Computed example of a mutant assay.
Amino acid sequence: MTTTTLKPPYGAPLHPGSATVEFRALRRAFGSTVALDGLDLTVHPGELLALLGPSGCGKTTALRILAGFETHDSGEVLVDGKDVTRTPAHKRDAGMVFQSYSLFPHLSALDNVSFGLKMRGVGKSERRAKAQELLELVGLPQRAAHYPHQMSGGQQQRIALARALALQPRVLLLDEPLSALDAKVRLNLREEIRRLQQELGITTLFVTHDQEEALSMADRVAVLKAGRLEQCATPSELYARPATAFVAEFVGTMSRIPAVRSGDGVEVLGRRHEVDGVLPAARALQVLVRPENVGLTPGGDAVVTGASFLGAVTRLTVRLADGTEVKSDLPTEQAALLPVGGGATVSLPDRPVLVDVATGK
């Protein structure tokens, strides 16, 4: 597991109450199922950190423990150095936005946003003024009198976000808030959430299983697998220098190409390469390579078996002599010289490669 630390601020003024959040050796099991297995992770003031991973990896459990909706078996959860284990959920200064919106159906947008302020005893005129200000912040001042059933899913989620911000939380928690929305609305809203987060400078944890969301929105991305942190890094580092094979294949597209040990390196496609990271002790090895790093030239033993036009780039699939399929992203004009059914020669750039134990795929 590796982590990358950034120095705040992240290009935005810090929210006056932005907090540092720390998970220390956090463990949580549900019967025989281990949801978190010693999670160590720090979220810096004003940072948007995405928790990314497949279903069941522990990301939502970590979020709910921080919010106070779940308890952990061992370890610590600290906010600005203070252990909040025994702090009730309503006193943790955390605002949470759920996947399902969770708006009160019998309340207008304005009353939904101001509900938390009402529970805290804020006067009617003050809380309505604050709610109206937040509706303007999320771009929905004209929807103040509308009820949830009168609004689209994207609008409801904006109302839920405004409600979470109404209490000026020190930490904003987003639990897959975009997964129930259609693609266009999801794209627009994720840009809006990122804009608001940067404008407010509030410490934010964003749970998602969508790599595109995580890479496009977050300052750093923490990739979880089976309750453990595989890597925490900036999106660019995560993509370009994945620490493990799991990270490499979960974030972006990867092809696996057979390789053989050659001293302290490997030989792949007839050339020797240094190894990026640890060389596994296993005899059967594979190199993991991204499509943009696979070169193709016309003629050779490989066969082009498919082409997907992506605009300026075309993704070609080629089958090596041993049956291995490899993907290559080429400029569309160059890809036109490699028709489906034609021969090709596959090459890799002269730099260290990520190596894993062969999977048998």
Rank of each mutant, 00 (worst) to 15 (best):
Arg158Leu: 04
Leu140Ile: 04
Met151Lys: 10
Pro148Trp: 08
Tyr147Gln: 14
Leu135Lys: 00
Tyr147Cys: 06
Gln132Ile: 02
Gly139Glu: 01
Ala160Cys: 14
Ala129Asn: 03
Lys130Tyr: 00
Ala129Leu: 04
Gln156Asp: 11
Met151Asp: 11
Arg163Phe: 04
Leu140Ala: 06
Pro141Tyr: 01
Gly153Tyr: 10
Glu136Lys: 03
Gln142Lys: 12
Val122Trp: 01
Arg163Met: 07
Arg127Pro: 09
Gly153Thr: 09
Ala131Val: 05
Leu137Trp: 04
Ala144His: 03
Val138Glu: 03
Arg128Met: 06
Ser152Thr: 12
Lys130Gly: 02
Gly153Ser: 12
Glu126Met: 00
Ala145Glu: 15
Ser125Met: 13
Arg127Trp: 04
Ala164Arg: 09
Gln132Asn: 14
Leu140Trp: 00
Gly139Val: 00
Ala166His: 03
Gln156Thr: 09
Tyr147Leu: 14
Ala144Pro: 03
Gly139Ala: 03
Ala160Met: 13
Gly153Met: 10
Ser125Asn: 15
Val122Pro: 04
Gln157Leu: 12
Glu133Met: 00
Ala131Ile: 02
Gly154Gln: 12
Gly123Met: 12
Arg158Ala: 05
Arg163Leu: 09
Ala166Cys: 06
Ala162Cys: 11
Ala131Ser: 10
Glu133Phe: 01
Ala160Leu: 11
Lys130Glu: 14
Ala164Pro: 13
Arg163Trp: 06
His146Gly: 05
Ala144Thr: 03
Arg143Met: 15
Leu134Asp: 00
Gly123Tyr: 08
Ala144Gly: 05
Leu167Ser: 14
Val138Lys: 02
Gln142Gly: 08
Ser152Gln: 12
Arg143Gln: 15
Glu133Asp: 13
Gln150Pro: 11
His149Cys: 09
Val122Asn: 04
Val138Thr: 08
Ala164Trp: 05
Arg127Leu: 07
Arg120Thr: 11
Pro141Gly: 05
Leu161Arg: 03
Ala144Val: 05
Ala144Ile: 02
Pro148His: 08
Ile159Lys: 01
Leu137Gly: 06
Glu133Ser: 04
Gln155Phe: 09
Arg158Ile: 03
His149Arg: 13
Ala145Val: 07
Ala145Tyr: 06
Ala160Gly: 15
Arg127Phe: 03
Gln150Ala: 13
Val122Ile: 14
Ala129Glu: 14
Met151Trp: 07
Val138Arg: 01
Lys130Thr: 08
Pro141Asn: 09
Leu135Val: 01
Gly123Ser: 14
Ala129Val: 01
Arg120Gln: 15
Leu137Asn: 06
Leu167Val: 15
Arg120Asp: 11
Leu161Val: 05
Ala166Pro: 11
Val122Leu: 02
Glu136Ser: 10
Met151Phe: 09
Gln155Ala: 11
Gly154Cys: 11
Ala166Ile: 03
Leu135Met: 11
Leu134Cys: 02
Gln156Met: 13
Leu165Asp: 06
Ala164Asp: 09
Gln155Trp: 08
Gly123Arg: 12
Arg163Pro: 06
Ala145Pro: 10
